[in-house]
Design a protein around this nucleic acid. Structure first.
Lengths: 194, 194
DNA sequence: TTATCATCTTAACAGTGTCAAGTTAATCGG
DNA sequence: CCGATTAACTTGACACTGTTAAGATGATAA
């Protein structure tokens, strides 16, 4: 049997990935530092060489999931069949909801006790802002920015769209929600209802 | 000094109210059974005469908050200036968002680890369903039910409306969201954007 | 080679939810 | 009014939690 080395080698990343794995399997409520330590085969206090606290690890895990989500959204926009801005907007919205339907535990994990900074104004510092929201802004600008929609109306539209898509993800990932149809097939109908 | 009686008298309700108080003050993350016990002046295990577990108390607290929300929504619909169905729908949506903006801690508490049963279908058992959602259904029926909108479209509309309003409440109550305008004044613009 | 230092361990602490067993006093049948 | 029953409480204990303090390990660099 291979003797476990004293030094793990890549503990920081292992903790993040094992933690996300644990959340995905058992839900955010069952998460504990010591469980993640056991999954990684280290002692209870090993994480403190890489993170200041449990919350610090959780933030790193949130950043990692946010990055996964951003990649999925970028992929959806990129793989959009038509080269149509409005079509890309729809595909992005669908991907946002589907990402959380496919990983239901991620929603609560990301947005309850949410640590990410989100600036809803049009002139936010896009490098620090929640990337999915910045993506939404960019596309909305392309769709409605040219024909002289007012800045205020444009901002309202962006918030409206994110609220709709985000709310749908919230509802669809609730534990005790009953819906007899196939979410994936209905997302578009529900979002673009008007 | 009045000697504390051995029996509390109204411990069940006191636990629920003290628990909600605690959540409102410190957030759902800081909640603990033993803290609520201290607030009520009883021992750590006293709640087990009234609740099976911590989760059981939390469910009772959620029911209580849901009832408060339902009363606020009913009040808003009732106090609606115009006797117009569409106007009532708007007022209800505004009240929903404002309820959580005024009590930000309630949102995460109610909907993460949400215990309430929600049936999204049109023919749900309305007595067991999340009351605010049943209220929404009733009003949407009055607004669009008469002119022959299809059942499926009607259902889509209801889910769309709830998602929008619910998502806006979610966004507006996030900890690190920056919004330089007054939510109360902008809710209507954002929701009825199209 | 030796010293340094990031990485890890063991031991301990207070706080958590919950079970088992015992105490208190309100209630009810005679 | 009295004694038994029993719901509502307390004390004590357990395993589990996050975190600190002190020490062990071993990779790296002078």
């Amino acid at each position: 049997m291979p003797n476990k080395p004293y030094h793990h080698g890549d503990l920081r990343n292992s903790l993040i990935e094992a933690g996300i794995e644990l959340i995905n399997r058992t839900g955010a409520g069952q998460f504990s530092l010591r469980k993640v330590c056991k999954l990684c085969g280290v002692s209870q206090t090993a994480p403190y060489s890489h993170f200041q606290s449990k919350e610090d690890l959780l933030e790193a895990m949130q950043d990692h999931v946010t990055q996964k989500l951003t990649e999925v959204l970028e992929g959806a926009v990129h793989a959009c069949p038509e080269k149509n801005d409005q079509r890309e907007l729809i595909e992005m919205g669908k991907s946002y909801v589907l990402f959380f339907i496919n990983n239901p535990q991620y929603f609560q994990f990301l947005f309850s006790e949410a640590s990410m900074r989100i600036d809803l104004s049009l002139d936010s510092d896009s490098s620090k802002n929640f990337p999915p929201f910045e993506m939404l802004k960019t596309i909305v600008f392309r769709v409605w920015g040219k024909n002289g929609m007012s800045k205020e109306k444009l901002e309202d539209t962006i918030i409206h769209l994110w609220a709709t898509v985000h709310g749908l993800a919230s509802i669809a990932t609730m534990k005790n929600v009953r819906y007899d149809k196939d979410w994936a097939a209905k997302i578009e109908d529900i979002i673009w209802n008007k």
